[in-house]
Design a protein around this nucleic acid. Structure first.
Length: 899
RNA sequence: GGGCGGGUAGCUCAGUUGGUUAGAGCACAUGUUUUACACACAUGAGGUCGCAGGUUCGAGCCCUGUCCCGCCCACCA
């Protein structure tokens, strides 16, 4: 038999196993027919991966979703359900383009000089080079996804899906193009959607100045702004219609500072009389609110900035200045002309680009939009009617709130990397050609002079189609027919709007079905102090480094048991370390079990006679399986993992394995059946643990299988040994046979006695090797205590030959220390270690404690609790009271005999 | 301005149908090379579950109020 390493060496295992799994085809749906003609009678479990950004490196967010999704998928696969987890990557428009541009800049090149086509080639090359990096890293995490079905959002098939989606929406009149107030990112020189703007509170200045009246330059209306450069684009000053201070000016004209352009004073209820000066400058082209007011009052729209946020020809003397330089300059100039009143420190919210971090400039640009109202209606209904369940449930409210107030979606981006919008402009007839395949001529006038729209689509447009585009939509492929709609969508709550909501809406729109039935949202990962990880804070934990040091299983297990859905999680290396220890514990328990195989005989002479420990661990295992099943059904994965951990370490390894040593030393049938139990518990535990810690369990299981096959009489899993643990059968709890509770209770009593004796030994500072004599006294438990002599003696260091159980005490053993455990008296002969003064003290303390308990319980049981609480609960308390009463008398006797 | 989450042992966190002396890991103290594991074993110390009310026979868990911390949404110059 092969020697197992003393510690679990994950480095030797992970890569090897992953390769093997993959080559064996286990990642593909179970029982996949050659022709992909699936049995429609069996409902598959399908999950599409949140596509990773091609340019990104692995971070803990990936670890989180892979750990969870792989757990779900492995669990279902073991349950025998055809299971598909589709992997893939996202072209991530802005992020990727930025990266490549950065790289080019280092080489002294720029996309403008190389032109669009060349640049796109450059990005593709980058994608080929780095795109596989992230998927390889996801493989390292053990992700059991079907790589044969891997997709990329810019793949041909997915691009077809994007076109189909665009054209259909357009044909339904749900896509329109036009000038609107947009969030303009001057650095990226593209529009971004509302979601891509972050509002950050920052200290700034509020600038107060004068709007002089055209016909009476001595008079003025005081106005305040945080952005003085926008004065150049002002086309009105607004006051509240009922504001007595300013009513007289309504209808008059005032002069724009510096430019001396004449603009009207208008009345609008939007103006807050209490705020600032109570009068508002209106820049319809550079402020969303002013835009609305401008529309209402038919104001002039003056755009003063170009695409780089540099002042244009409308800015008069300021043309060519950057927006912030202009801010300074115009204020200086106004000061000189005595047009300013004051400046005041002010905290305001600044819109910043989520990507580049630069300040977003609201600007009127021509963009493509998707009308959201009808889509949102359907999206709301699907969740309201329970067709889609969002977990944790509270996020349903967040989802509703967003969709109920959703604005039209700006889907065009002035980028080069992405799906180019399938619209062609005709130079001759000016009409648009919208097509699924590239047209050669205008569909209206037949002219050959057509140009494709240069804008690309928002990257989330294609990811919004992900659950069905990856399965072949719009083609009616076998995969699409069988696997759609998918089952589970698992992702971080931070992209609920960006991604999940859009998948739901687009899925309903295009496929007529909800794209998945459950959304499981995990929290974000923070450092051990609960702070968001960021490079600037230098608190980023690199999962690759952690895996290198502690192993993948340890990291995965940490993510799973350390978190609850929807709540952010702090991760610390200490935790990972503890779970590395757990992996090692699994390994060594397995090593022990496997190592014992040689020591047992091949065939038993008689039917099994199970010991209390055997029965106990078996019963506990059944209970565990039931609990785990229940928790999985409720998506309480972390709690399930915790319970398996507790069982495996705290019960199997700490107690059963120790007693098994004793039983195996007996040899013969006893050894045989003990080893059988050991293997059975181990096998089952490995199955339960596999979705959490796939590598160590598979490796150990293979060893267990190999060794067990040498002794087929000893143990066979119910359905024989499968090829691999990852496709082995998920354990099924056996129905309770009625004896279990009593065995579990008896064993708990043994544990209690052992702990009490160990405690006494430690307190009295007994040398650990010293075996001591003991007398146990109990009329009711006598049989049990006699039968369990050996385990009790072994575990608490008693001398078996001087172990006595008496129904009642005739005479107190000389030189012994008395204990009472659940009504059972225990006398340990520790003569030379006893200080009778201390003993009395100890007993007094114990008596006091138990008296308190008795008092508490008597009070409780004589209250209305006894009538109103369920019987079972009351009985439990009564039993407790009985045990205490039993104990207290004995304790008192013991104390008295010492005095 | 609206909504949500968290506040439980020194630290990081579990604790889902409310059941009656509250759990884990780490850290801490003491002891141990016990033939699977020192990435271990044994024993121990450590908490009025943010605060104040309420419902209930019974509340960490449900309700109300309140204080901190964090997040999301929203157009206040």
């Amino acid at each position: 038999m092969k020697e197992l390493a003393k510690a679990y060496e994950f480095k030797d295992v992970e890569h090897k196993l992953y390769q093997w799994w993959q080559e064996s085809g286990y990642f593909s749906p179970w029982n996949e027919p050659e022709n992909h003609d699936f049995d429609p009678g069996i409902k598959p479990y399908v999950l599409s991966i949140p596509p990773a950004n091609v340019t990104g490196g692995l971070h803990l967010g990936h670890v989180m979703f892979v750990a969870l999704e792989d757990l779900m998928v492995r669990h279902q696969r073991m349950r025998g359900v055809p299971t598909l987890w589709i992997p893939g990557t996202d072209h991530a428009g802005i992020a990727t383009q930025l990266q490549v541009e950065k790289m080019l800049a280092l080489q002294g090149r720029s996309r403008e000089e190389m032109g669009r086509e060349k640049f796109e080639q450059e990005v593709w090359q980058w994608k080929e080079k780095y795109g596989s990096q992230i998927t390889n890293q996801i493989r390292r995490l053990g992700a059991s996804c079907d790589w044969k079905r891997e997709r990329f959002t810019l793949d041909e098939g997915l691009s077809d899906a994007v076109r189909e989606a665009f054209v259909r929406l357009y044909e339904k009149g749900m896509i329109y193009r036009g000038p609107r107030m947009t969030n303009w990112s001057p650095g990226l020189r593209t529009a971004v959607s509302d979601l891509e703007v972050e509002y950050v509170e920052e200290p700034g200045l509020l600038y107060y100045f004068k709007y002089r009246l055209a016909d009476s330059p001595a008079e003025f209306i005081p106005v305040a702004t945080t952005r003085p450069e926008t004065i150049l684009g002002d086309t009105a000053v607004a006051v509240h219609p009922e504001d007595e201070r300013y009513q007289k000016y309504i209808g008059k004209t005032v002069l724009v500072p510096i430019l001396d352009r004449e603009i009207p004073v208008i009345a609008d209820e939007y103006v807050d009389r209490e705020f600032g000066t109570g009068s508002l400058k209106i820049t319809p082209s550079h402020d969303p609110n002013d835009y609305e007011i401008g529309m209402r009052h038919n104001l002039q729209f003056i755009n003063i900035l170009d695409k780089n946020a540099v002042v244009n020809e409308n800015g008069g003397p300021y043309q060519g200045l950057d927006r912030f330089v202009c801010r300074e300059k115009i204020w200086q100039d106004m000061k000189e002309k005595e047009l300013v009143l004051k400046e005041q420190p002010y905290i305001h919210t600044v819109p910043r680009s989520q990507r580049g971090g630069e300040i977003i400039e609201p600007m009127i640009t021509t963009q493509w939009y998707v009308q959201m109202k009808p889509l949102a209606e359907a999206g709301l209904e699907a969740v309201r009617e329970g067709k889609i369940k969002i977990l944790p449930e509270r996020f349903e409210k967040v989802y509703f709130n967003w969709l109920e107030n959703v604005q039209d979606w700006c889907i065009s981006r002035q980028l080069w990397w992405g799906h180019r919008i399938p619209v062609w402009y005709c130079d001759e007839c000016d009409l648009l050609t919208i097509a699924r395949t590239d047209p050669t001529q205008c569909s209206h006038c037949g002219s050959l002079k057509i140009r494709q729209e240069t804008d690309v689509l928002d990257t989330w447009f294609s990811s919004g189609l992900w659950p069905f585009s990856t399965l072949g939509w719009p083609q009616e492929t076998a995969d699409y027919r069988y696997f759609y709609p998918t089952t589970m969508m698992e992702t971080g709550y931070d992209i609920l709007f960006f991604w999940v909501a859009r998948m739901i809406m687009l899925g309903l729109e295009f496929t007529g079905q909800a794209p998945f039935d459950t959304v499981y949202l995990h929290g974000l990962i923070r450092d051990e102090n609960g702070v968001k990880m960021s490079k600037t804070k230098n608190n980023v934990i690199d999962p690759l480094v952690v895996m290198e040091e502690m192993g993948t299983d340890a990291l995965r297990f940490t993510m799973l048991v350390g978190s609850t859905p929807g709540n952010d999680t702090s991760i610390s290396l200490k935790k990972v370390e503890a779970n590395r220890n757990f992996a090692n514990k699994i390994w060594n328990a397995g090593r022990f079990v496997i190592g014992n195989l040689e020591r047992v005989s091949n065939t038993p002479q008689a039917d099994p006679q199970w010991t209390l420990a055997d029965s106990w661990i078996w019963a506990r295992l059944q209970e565990l399986i039931r609990d785990v099943d229940r928790l999985f059904a409720n998506h309480q994965y972390g709690e399930a993992g915790r319970q398996i951990y507790e069982f495996f370490w705290g019960e199997f390894a700490d107690w059963y394995v120790e007693i098994a040593k004793l039983q195996i030393n007996k040899g013969g049938d006893r050894a045989f059946y003990t080893e059988q139990t050991l293997i059975r518990i181990l096998d089952t535990s490995l199955r339960l643990l596999h979705p959490f810690t796939p590598f160590v369990t598979e490796e150990l299981w293979q060893n267990l299988k190999e060794a067990s096959l040498q002794k087929p009489d000893l143990y066979q899993p119910q359905d024989g040994w499968e090829e691999a643990l990852m496709i082995a059968k998920w354990p099924q709890a056996q129905a309770s046979e009625g004896w279990e509770d009593e065995k579990v209770k008896s064993f708990a009593l043994i544990q209690e006695i052992v702990r009490a004796i160990r405690n006494a030994r430690t307190e009295k500072k007994l040398p650990p090797g010293r075996k001591i004599a003991a007398v146990l006294v109990s009329p009711e438990m006598r049989e049990l205590l006699v039968a369990q002599k050996e385990p009790i003696a072994l575990l608490s260091g008693l001398d078996q030959d001087r172990y006595e159980v008496l129904p009642s005490l005739v005479e107190k053993p000389q030189g012994s220390t008395p204990l009472v455990v659940a009504g059972i008296e225990v006398y340990l002969s520790l003569a030379e270690f006893i200080d009778s003064g201390l003993e009395v003290e100890r007993l007094e303390k114990e008596i006091q404690e138990i008296e308190n308990q008795i008092e508490r319980l008597q009070k409780l049981l004589s209250s209305s609790f006894a009538e109103k609480a369920p019987m079972a609960v009351v009985n439990k308390e009564r039993e407790k009271l009985e045990t205490y009463c039993n104990s207290i008398e004995k304790l008192k006797e013991q104390r008295n005999s010492l005095e």
